[in-house]
Amino acid sequence: MARTNPHTLQMQITTMFRDGQSFFALTKVQDWLKEHNQNPLEYDVIFHQKPAPPGSKEVIAIEIELQRKDGQPVDPWLQEQANLHA
């Protein structure tokens, strides 16, 4: 059973980048994909630094882009969930 975390994946990844722990971000996304019944080996993960949304305590936000290695489109719901804001 997956652990519930009050912070969204996008918030966790942004915190990792802010705290100098970006090395672990890919593993975090791969674990998240497994929790969502996806094979992480089927995806390339790209991180984009963007300005944080209005009202956020952060200055930057890291957007997570998922790309399937087989060229098929990523499920829009999955992509949306990866970048949910709290």
Rank of each mutant, 00 (worst) to 15 (best):
residue 33 L to E: 02
residue 34 K to F: 09
residue 34 K to S: 10
residue 34 K to V: 15
residue 34 K to L: 15
residue 35 E to N: 13
residue 35 E to P: 01
residue 36 H to C: 00
residue 37 N to D: 14
residue 37 N to L: 06
residue 38 Q to D: 05
residue 39 N to Q: 05
residue 39 N to M: 05
residue 39 N to L: 04
residue 40 P to S: 01
residue 40 P to R: 00
residue 40 P to K: 04
residue 41 L to V: 12
residue 41 L to I: 12
residue 42 E to Q: 15
residue 42 E to L: 13
residue 42 E to N: 15
residue 42 E to F: 06
residue 42 E to W: 10
residue 42 E to I: 05
residue 42 E to D: 15
residue 43 Y to C: 07
residue 43 Y to I: 00
residue 43 Y to S: 11
residue 44 D to A: 13
residue 44 D to N: 15
residue 45 V to L: 08
residue 47 F to E: 00
residue 47 F to A: 00
residue 48 H to R: 15
residue 48 H to W: 11
residue 48 H to D: 07
residue 48 H to C: 06
residue 49 Q to M: 15
residue 50 K to I: 13
residue 50 K to T: 13
residue 51 P to M: 12
residue 51 P to C: 09
residue 51 P to Q: 14
residue 52 A to R: 01
residue 52 A to Y: 02
residue 53 P to G: 08
residue 54 P to N: 09
residue 54 P to A: 10
residue 54 P to I: 05
residue 54 P to M: 05
residue 55 G to T: 12
residue 55 G to F: 08
residue 55 G to W: 10
residue 55 G to Y: 10
residue 56 S to Q: 00
residue 57 K to M: 12
residue 58 E to C: 07
residue 59 V to P: 03
residue 59 V to Q: 14
residue 59 V to E: 14
residue 60 I to M: 13
residue 60 I to T: 13
residue 60 I to G: 06
residue 61 A to S: 11
residue 61 A to T: 08
residue 61 A to M: 07
residue 61 A to L: 07
residue 62 I to P: 04
residue 62 I to W: 06
residue 63 E to T: 10
residue 63 E to V: 05
residue 63 E to R: 12
residue 63 E to Y: 10
residue 64 I to Q: 05
residue 65 E to H: 11
residue 65 E to L: 11
residue 65 E to V: 09
residue 66 L to H: 04
residue 68 R to G: 04
residue 68 R to E: 07
residue 68 R to H: 03
residue 68 R to S: 09
residue 68 R to T: 06
residue 69 K to G: 05
residue 69 K to Y: 01
residue 69 K to E: 05
residue 70 D to R: 07
residue 71 G to M: 07
residue 72 Q to K: 12
